[in-house]
Simulated scan of single mutants.
Amino acid sequence: MIETQTRLGVLKTHELLFFMSLIPYLVIEMFGTTMFSIPYFLHTIAKAVLIFAIISVFFKKTWSVYFLLVAALFSITGVLVWHATSDTGVLVLAIFLMGAYKIDVRKIITVYLIIIGSIMLLTFISSLLGLIPNLQYIRPDTGIVRNSFGIIYPTDFAAHVFYLYLFSAYLFLWKRPWLLAGVGLFTAWFLIRFSDARLDALTVLITGFIFVLIYYLPKNRLYHKLMSWSALATVAAAYLSYYLTVHFNPRQPFYAKVNAQLSGRLSLGKRALDLYGIKPFGQVIEFIGNGGSTDSVSNYNFVDSSFLKVMLLYGAVFIILFIILTTIRSIQSVNSKDYYTLAVLLAVAVNSMVAHHLIEPYYNVFSILLLADFTKNWHQTKRRKNF
């Protein structure tokens, strides 16, 4: 087994191979969400380098039965979705899930934060200097200006900010709850003030609140029981998204009010479900939304809820498998009293009800970490040292 010394510590061969796939993939796909002009063939390269992640699996020496079962189910599903839709999204996710197996989550999240954070900073500054467009959208009902700061759309900018905050909290900020709360409040204010991204700002506040509660609440039996129930957050969020959409009726005051608060997400989701239905392994749907230009879109039909969008595009089989895998990871976190990992999965579930980035690693890197190494519970160790 070859080992390489890096700033991430000693990397084993399978880890080095995995990062040879992940790093170029994150860089290319992240730039694809900005207003920087990049050649389209780079996206092909981002998929081509996945070969290193595939090879890395064979350098892990041993595999658990659970890993082999998950790898087989997701790989087969990915191939069937690819056959039905010509979309490789599920297959890419399956490859990264397998490649991340046995790798410390801290190493992967550190790479994510460095790459995504650096590109976000570069994009933000470039948009202010006029090197790339800062697309500005105006809400017709209020006249509020929504800035995208070099990202293709204000809510995409807000989603990047949300996930950067979430994973920074998970890795670093949890040790300083008042700093975590202060950064969260400023971030939420900034998103509302300059991008009018109210739902993303709300999930930032919810995330900060959950992390602070975990830090301060006494770890007694009642606390553990409450956290145990939160392991079902992904199931609950997915079911609630589907139930509200399927039963949406604009003539009922409750649904009309919820739909208005969610910027029409229920009506758009209902229309998509009625028009396309749900297929086992997905279907080809051309979702048309805003982004990349301030030109108005007359035939807007975009579905924002991740659970609905993924189910429509990639089928019922994949979304059920993904929810089950996420829930198992949540239960494992409860059993090991790894409450901060549980908090991340809870925050992702809430955000995914209103945003469509659930299985996009350059937004939600946790989507590829469900088989990674969570055994080093550094949160518990360092918390004990603080007392």
Results as ranks from 00 to 15, higher is better:
residue 371 L to D: 08
residue 97 L to V: 00
residue 172 F to N: 08
residue 139 R to Y: 11
residue 124 F to D: 09
residue 53 A to N: 04
residue 300 Y to N: 14
residue 264 G to P: 06
residue 148 S to V: 07
residue 340 Y to N: 12
residue 282 G to T: 05
residue 380 Q to Y: 09
residue 301 N to W: 03
residue 189 W to H: 09
residue 347 A to Y: 10
residue 204 V to M: 01
residue 344 V to L: 05
residue 56 S to Q: 09
residue 6 T to F: 08
residue 41 F to D: 11
residue 286 E to V: 10
residue 162 F to E: 01
residue 313 L to R: 11
residue 14 H to D: 14
residue 298 S to D: 12
residue 124 F to W: 15
residue 32 G to T: 05
residue 56 S to H: 07
residue 88 T to D: 12
residue 234 T to N: 11
residue 192 I to G: 03
residue 5 Q to F: 05
residue 79 V to Y: 15
residue 341 T to Y: 06
residue 331 I to R: 10
residue 6 T to E: 09
residue 82 W to P: 00
residue 194 F to C: 02
residue 153 Y to V: 05
residue 321 L to C: 00
residue 264 G to M: 11
residue 229 W to Y: 14
residue 324 I to N: 01
residue 233 A to W: 09
residue 236 A to I: 15
residue 88 T to V: 15
residue 25 Y to S: 07
residue 28 I to F: 08
residue 379 H to C: 04
residue 204 V to W: 00
residue 72 A to L: 15
residue 256 A to E: 14
residue 13 T to C: 04
residue 15 E to R: 03
residue 384 R to H: 09
residue 2 I to E: 13
residue 50 L to T: 04
residue 76 I to P: 00
residue 197 A to C: 05
residue 41 F to A: 08
residue 127 S to L: 04
residue 331 I to N: 06
residue 169 A to V: 06
residue 85 T to W: 02
residue 362 Y to T: 11
residue 183 V to Q: 02
residue 177 P to W: 00
residue 121 L to T: 14
residue 158 A to Y: 00
residue 87 D to I: 00
residue 45 I to Q: 03
residue 345 L to R: 10
residue 197 A to I: 01
residue 330 S to W: 01
residue 308 L to S: 02
residue 38 I to Y: 03
residue 377 N to G: 08
residue 117 G to D: 04
